[in-house]
Amino acid sequence: MSKLLSRSLKRLMIYAGLVLVCSIPAYYFIFSRLWQYELNEHNVVITAEASREDSYLIIAFVTGLTVLFFALLIVGLILVNRRISNRLWQPFYRSLAQIKGFDLHRQQPVEFEKTDIDEFTELNQSLHKLIAGNVAVYNQQKEFADNASHELQTPLAIIQSKLDLLLQSQSLTDEQYNIIEEANKALARVTRINKNLLLLTKIENSQFMEKEQIDLSALLENTLPVLASFAEDKQLTLQTDIHPGVVVEGNKILIEILLNNLVTNAIRYSPANDVIAIRLDSQSLSIANAGTAPLKQEQLFKRFSSISSQTPGTGLGLALVKQISNRYGWQIDYAFSDRLHTFTLTF
């Protein structure tokens, strides 16, 4: 067990020392050759001029030799460093691959290999702790979503059943009946909000991870007739331009929710006797309905931002759309022009 830094440093120092030791005989050899050459050439007549010429020569040789060894040192260091790094960082890369391959949803156990380097051992231990913590929180959240669902739905069911029973009383006045109906409506809304909130939580918790190839064109064609009857109730015309064979990858339940929410929104907020235009091609899906004023774009996809007395929706429909688009890396945009609200989903 040793530190990462001391390992690589040791090897690099050994190499540098080796190069320096090698340079000593090289210097000795070059200088003795130089000396001999000078003796032969000039017969050691030391004049001021010759001595200056000598010093230039020596400087040139020393510089050349030093540059050579420096280059040797650098190239060697790079090579040695690369080799050491490759070997030293192996455990790190293996841990990295493990983390990359980890999927919180599938929760397969992560086993890090043992290494004899302090830092990596420490890193692996911390990662292990982190992942175990995340898995625990994830499971807790999932359980919470399930429990919250149960805990809330049952009292809601009791209220609902009691209202239905109350309705059967013989001596109800119109006023009392209307009070019950108002309560019924509010209850239906609470139920929907609860359902959608749970759905959002589930998507955030990375449930619904199963993916398949979905023929979006066919799915949309199947969805529209169901919704069309609601459009008819408002005398709306559905104008469709659906290119066949548009295939996306995703979870069927989520994609259905996404389509449903976008189309129902258009039906809900469109004035009566108008047209809803739905267009699907290989790049995008766009749904346009008439409107009078642009909506607040930055608020649109936030939870509960759209809720007001005029819009009795759950305030979660578009948040769900956004969440699902994010999951698949799709882009959802809103634009208002020519008195048309247009939502465009780009795959």
């Binding site: 239906a188 139920t191 169901v226 919704l227 129902t264 009795p312 929706g313």
Partner: peptide, 11 residues
């Protein structure tokens, strides 16, 4: 299933 459609009971 399309409970979100329930704003108006007129239909």
């Amino acid at each position: 299933e399309i409970a979100d459609m329930l704003d108006s009971y007129d239909f």
